[in-house]
Computed example of a mutant assay.
Amino acid sequence: MVEQQTLFERIGGMDAVNAAVDIFYSKVLADESISHFFKNTNMATQAGKQKAFLAYAFGAPMAYTGKNMRDAHAHMQLEEAHFNAVATHLVATLQELKVAQELIDEVVVIAMSTKDDVLNR
């Protein structure tokens, strides 16, 4: 029986996650509609948290010890437009890295599964 590779493995492992997060945050910080959420954030620390979360969410063989999505975003008063901007930057980043569309689609499903928690609904 052939074992199914995780999305983490199929996307390229930690090297791919690291590259994606670095490009992703450059897009987020350049976007005036959402960059203000990060004005008092240590971005090296934030990127590290995001890398760990995405690796875990994509099926990496590791534990995630950070806050859950609801707690991490509860104080931010995020709206649908903010979530959509972040999701758009994530997809654009993966396209820029030439990730296959079927893998991007899997990433979008994972991202959408966090939407209610991120928006505190």
Rank of each mutant, 00 (worst) to 15 (best):
D116S: 13
T41A: 09
A16G: 03
A20K: 05
D31A: 13
V17A: 08
D105G: 04
K51T: 07
V118A: 11
H75K: 06
A60H: 08
T45F: 12
A30G: 12
I110R: 12
E106V: 08
L103S: 02
F83N: 10
Q4P: 03
T45S: 14
M43Y: 10
A44H: 06
E79M: 10
F58W: 07
N120C: 03
V118R: 04
A87V: 06
A20R: 02
L119M: 02
Q4F: 00
Q50Y: 04
S26C: 03
V99A: 14
V17T: 09
V28K: 03
Y25W: 02
A81N: 15
A52W: 05
I34E: 00
F38Q: 02
A92G: 03
M1K: 10
M14N: 07
N42H: 15
E96W: 01
E106Y: 04
A20L: 11
I34P: 01
D15N: 08
L90I: 09
A60V: 04
V21N: 06
F24I: 03
N18M: 07
V109K: 05
M14I: 13
E106G: 01
D31N: 08
Q95Y: 06
A52G: 14
L7D: 10
E3C: 10
K51Q: 04
N42R: 14
T65L: 14
T65K: 15
V17Y: 05
R121W: 01
T6A: 11
Q4E: 15
E106P: 00
M112A: 07
L94V: 07
Q46S: 11
L29Q: 13
K49D: 01
A47Q: 12
A44R: 06
T114M: 11
F38I: 09
E3A: 08
N18K: 12
R70S: 10
D71R: 13
A100M: 04
